Lab assay of single mutants.
Amino acid sequence: EAHAAIDTFTKYLDIDEDFATVLVEEGFSTLEELAYVPMKELLEIEGLDEPTVEALRERAKNALATIAQ
């Protein structure tokens, strides 16, 4: 499951495998979680700032909209 989540994140969020791995290690496994989890939870991840989190959430929401079509 972790590998599938990493693949999904790299494909749809335009991030590298290392960043995707950090997200999975922090407990995220779906685009929905990244799109809708409280921003505070993402900001608790070391190295993430508000602009990065906002961009990540926007990419996740856009990916979900694209997949739904």
Score class of each variant (00 low, 15 high):
Ala63Asp: 01
Ala68Asn: 11
Asp7Arg: 14
Leu34Cys: 02
Pro51Gly: 11
Leu13Asp: 01
Leu43Asn: 04
Asp16Asn: 09
Ala5Glu: 03
Ile6Val: 09
Glu25Tyr: 14
Glu33Met: 13
Thr21Asp: 03
Phe28Ser: 00
Leu31Ala: 00
Ala65Trp: 08
Ile15Leu: 06
Glu25Val: 11
Thr8Cys: 08
Ile45Phe: 04
Glu46His: 12
Glu41Cys: 14
Glu50Ala: 12
Arg59Met: 09
Thr21Met: 14
Phe28His: 03
Asn62Ile: 14
Glu50Asp: 06
Ala68Ile: 09
Glu44Pro: 05
Lys61Met: 10
Ile15Asp: 01
Glu46Val: 13
Leu23Gly: 00
Ala68Tyr: 06
Leu42Pro: 03
Thr10Ser: 06
Tyr12Ala: 05
Ala63Leu: 04
Val22Asp: 03
Leu42His: 03
Pro51Ser: 13
Thr30Ile: 03
Lys61Cys: 05
Leu34Glu: 00
Leu42Ala: 05
Ser29Ile: 11
Ile67Asp: 05
Thr10Val: 15
Asp16Trp: 04
Glu25Phe: 13
Ile6Asp: 01
Gln69Pro: 07
Asp18Ser: 13
Thr66Met: 14
Pro51Arg: 14
Tyr12Asn: 03
Leu64His: 02
Leu23Glu: 00
Leu31Pro: 01
Ala68Glu: 09
Glu26Met: 15
Asn62Ser: 12
Val22Ser: 08
Thr52Lys: 09
Glu41Thr: 14
Lys40Asp: 10
Glu41Gly: 08
Thr30Gly: 04
His3Glu: 10
Thr21Arg: 15
Ala35Pro: 02
Val24Glu: 02
Pro38Arg: 06
Ala2Pro: 09
Met39Gln: 07
Glu41Met: 13
Arg59Glu: 03
Glu50Asn: 07
His3Pro: 07
Phe19Trp: 07
Asp14Gly: 15
Gln69Gly: 11
Val22Arg: 15
Leu13Lys: 01
Glu1Phe: 07
Phe9Gly: 00
Met39Thr: 11
Leu31Cys: 02
Glu26Gly: 15
Leu64Tyr: 02
Ile15Trp: 01
Ile15Ser: 01
Val37Glu: 06
Glu17Met: 10
Gly47Met: 07
Pro38His: 08
Leu43Trp: 05
Ala20Gln: 01
Ala4Ser: 12
Ala20Asp: 01
Val22Phe: 15
Glu44Arg: 15
Thr66Asp: 08
Glu32Lys: 07
Gly47Ile: 06
Ala5Leu: 10
Leu48Trp: 06
Asp7Leu: 15
Asp14Ala: 13
Leu43Asp: 02
Asp14Phe: 14
Ala63Thr: 04
Thr10Gln: 09
Leu23Ile: 03
Lys40Arg: 12
Val24Asp: 01
Asn62Ala: 14
Pro38Trp: 06
Glu26Cys: 10
Ala2Gly: 11
Glu54Gln: 13
Glu54Ala: 14
Glu26Trp: 15
Glu32Phe: 11
Gln69Asn: 11
Arg57Ala: 05
Thr8Glu: 06
Ala55Phe: 09
Ala60Gln: 01
Glu58Gln: 14
Asn62Phe: 10
Leu56Lys: 00
Lys40Met: 09
Gly27Val: 02
Phe9Cys: 02
Val22Lys: 15
Ala55Asp: 08
Lys61Arg: 13
Lys40Asn: 12
Ala20Pro: 01
Thr8Trp: 10
Leu42Gln: 03
Val24Trp: 15
Lys61Asp: 02
Glu26Asn: 15
Phe9Glu: 00
Glu44Val: 12
Ile45Gln: 02
Ala68Cys: 08
Leu48Thr: 05
Asp49Thr: 08
Leu56Tyr: 01
Leu31His: 00
Glu54Ser: 14
Phe28Glu: 00
Gly47Thr: 05
Thr30Trp: 03
Gln69Tyr: 03
Ile67Asn: 05
Ala2Cys: 08
Ile45Asp: 01
Ala2Val: 11
Glu17Phe: 11
Leu13Glu: 01
Glu25His: 14
Ile15His: 01
Glu25Ser: 15
Phe9Tyr: 03
Gly27Pro: 01
Glu33Val: 08
Ile45Arg: 05
Asn62Gln: 14
Ile67Gly: 06
Glu33Gly: 07
Ala63Val: 08
Glu46Cys: 08
Phe9Val: 00
Leu31Thr: 01
Leu64Met: 07
Pro51Met: 11
Asp49Met: 04
Glu26Pro: 01
His3Ala: 13
Glu54Met: 12
Leu64Trp: 04
Ala60Thr: 03
Gly27His: 03
Glu46Gly: 10
Glu32Trp: 15
Arg57Trp: 04
Leu56Glu: 00
Ala5Lys: 07
Leu43Tyr: 07
Tyr36Phe: 12
Glu44Phe: 10
Asn62His: 12
Glu54Arg: 15
Val53Pro: 02
Leu48Cys: 03
Ala5Tyr: 07
Gly47Gln: 05
Asp18Glu: 13
Glu1Asn: 13
Ala68Met: 09
Ala68His: 13
Ile6Tyr: 04
Ala65Ile: 12
Val37Met: 11
Glu33Ala: 12
Gln69Asp: 10
Asp16Met: 06
Asp18Ile: 12
Phe19Cys: 07
Lys40Gln: 13
Ile67Glu: 05
Asn62Val: 12
Asn62Leu: 14
Val53Ala: 15
Thr52Phe: 13
Pro38Asp: 14
Ala63Cys: 04
Ala65Arg: 09
Leu48Glu: 02
Val24Tyr: 14
His3Trp: 13
Glu1Val: 12
Lys40Ile: 11
Leu23Trp: 02
Thr21Ile: 12
Leu48Ser: 02
Ile6Pro: 02
Glu1His: 11
Lys61Ala: 08
Asp16Phe: 04
Glu17Arg: 15
Leu43Pro: 04
Val24Gly: 01
Lys61Tyr: 07
Arg57Met: 08
Thr66Ala: 13
Gly47Ser: 07
Ile15Tyr: 01
Arg57Val: 09
Glu32Met: 09
Ala60Pro: 01
Ala2Tyr: 15
Pro38Cys: 09
Asp49Phe: 05
Leu34Ser: 00
Leu48Val: 08
Asp18Lys: 13
Pro38Ala: 09
Ile6Cys: 04
Asp49Ser: 07
Thr30Met: 05
Ala5Asn: 06
Glu54Asp: 07
Asp49Arg: 04
Ile15Asn: 00
Ala5Gln: 06
Arg59Gln: 07
